[in-house]
Write a protein that binds this DNA or RNA. Structure first.
Lengths: 235, 235
DNA sequence: GTAATAGTGTCTGTGAGACACTATAAA
DNA sequence: TTTATAGTGTCTCACAGACACTATTAC
């Protein structure tokens, strides 16, 4: 906090939050908004906006997630929202000096989003497609970081339960891991690992019948635990 | 980036960087600066300062580390500097709305720091002592997060090599792990683990004699690798 | 000599990975 | 019946942890 500056003459910055909302459908997808205004009008971008004068960064992220994502309240309750990193290169916004605190959110697979207030359109887009999309600002870079963070975090945390509904089968959870990591995982070993980790999942007692056959699968909900020890391993 | 605001009328924020400089001596220690000015004059705080108008956040962190830490250039080359998290509660600075992008740095054990430009004093302080220290702003919280992050990161990264000199013995590295984690580790198993991980350490061919006896120990320098796979485990 | 540190050998238990197998449902 | 999914059994290999042991130096 101390520095070579007179604190009364600090340089003024705008501060924003951007949110990488991720969902695991048949692929890992990110929620994008088509910008209605300059700069980058017409281009796809992350949902986000300015932090208000008397609002914490965490509150701003929660507000933007609610306003722009089109998620209803019960869904947001099951959602995970976490700060990712802050992006503050000098030229990242052509209008002025803007520092953006990026977040990521994990939500269950959902119907298509509705367009937000000042967004011309909104859509789920596969993260594999990011490399050919030319997003606004440095948003490609932010998404890359979010995807890497989430892939890593599924190894040692129980976060995957935020990418399925509030009740799920072990096959649902298995599918989420395979979609996020983009690789096959042995279901038998996965089951043993998940059930053998205290606090990962709790059986509800209920069962769900898959269309197309097979015995009814036991249903689970997220447990109290947040960390996997030892972790689930990729490759 | 899009939002309900007129972008020309964005609320002005001050943006700072704060740096948690950590070193593993006989204990894990953090570099603190005694503040010379209000607010919190006379209290201990993290080194840091305002981000300049045409300076990226990363550049500001590098500049503050150089200016305020009293580390010489060759030492800084061996140092690791990484963004930690951003703190933006409304009341965290009594003067005005300030968002601080916190970083952490890992440096080798060193002689005592010299006082920075506008700091009345600077000192290495054991992190165990933070709970009884009443630091300025939310700096206790920032240090807690940095320490937790570093402890976790030693499990799955090669970062510990930044807490020893540029040439070190396996006993040096072993000592760093024990100091950071605050627990004993079996040296024999630790050696095998480190030597069996490609890219963690590279033998220099040199040896160093400890005062007090024992055979000369082989010297190593950091390898190319950044990740430990599988990780080193605590507890 | 003694004390201290460097470095090796080896046993055991845990757990990940591979994969065969049974059971139960829809179509 | 066929097909798909739920769930179990079991073997093997890698590796972490415990700990005994030898070797080399200062003092």
């Amino acid at each position: 906090m101390s520095g070579p500056y007179d604190p009364a003459a600090f340089p003024p910055f705008a501060v924003t939050v951007d949110i990488v909302v991720l969902s695991a459908r048949s692929e890992l997808q990110v929620l994008l908004i088509r910008r209605g205004e300059e700069p980058f009008a017409g281009q796809w971008a992350l949902p986000g906006g300015f932090v208000r004068e008397r609002e914490s960064i965490a509150d701003a992220a929660l507000r933007e997630l609610a306003e722009e994502s089109g998620l209803d309240a019960p869904t947001r309750l099951h959602t995970h929202l976490e700060q990712l990193a802050t992006f503050g290169d000098v030229e990242r916004d052509p209008r002025m000096r803007v520092v953006s605190v990026a977040h990521f959110a994990l939500v269950a697979a959902l119907p298509d989003p509705t367009a937000g207030t000042d967004a011309a359109d909104a859509a789920w887009t596969p993260v594999d497609q990011m490399s050919v999309m030319d997003l606004a600002f440095d948003h490609s870079q932010i998404i890359d970081l979010a995807v890497a963070r989430v892939r890593a975090k599924l190894e040692y945390s129980t976060l995957a339960t935020r990418l399925v509904g509030s009740e799920f089968t072990l096959s649902d959870l298995h599918r989420v891991y395979q979609v996020v990591w983009g690789m096959p995982l042995d279901l038998a070993n996965f089951r043993r690992k998940v059930l053998g980790t205290d606090g990962f999942v709790v059986p509800t007692g209920g069962h769900r019948q898959q269309p197309g056959g097979g015995p009814p699968a036991a249903l689970y909900r997220p447990g109290d635990g947040t960390w996997l020890n030892p972790p689930l391993t990729r490759e």
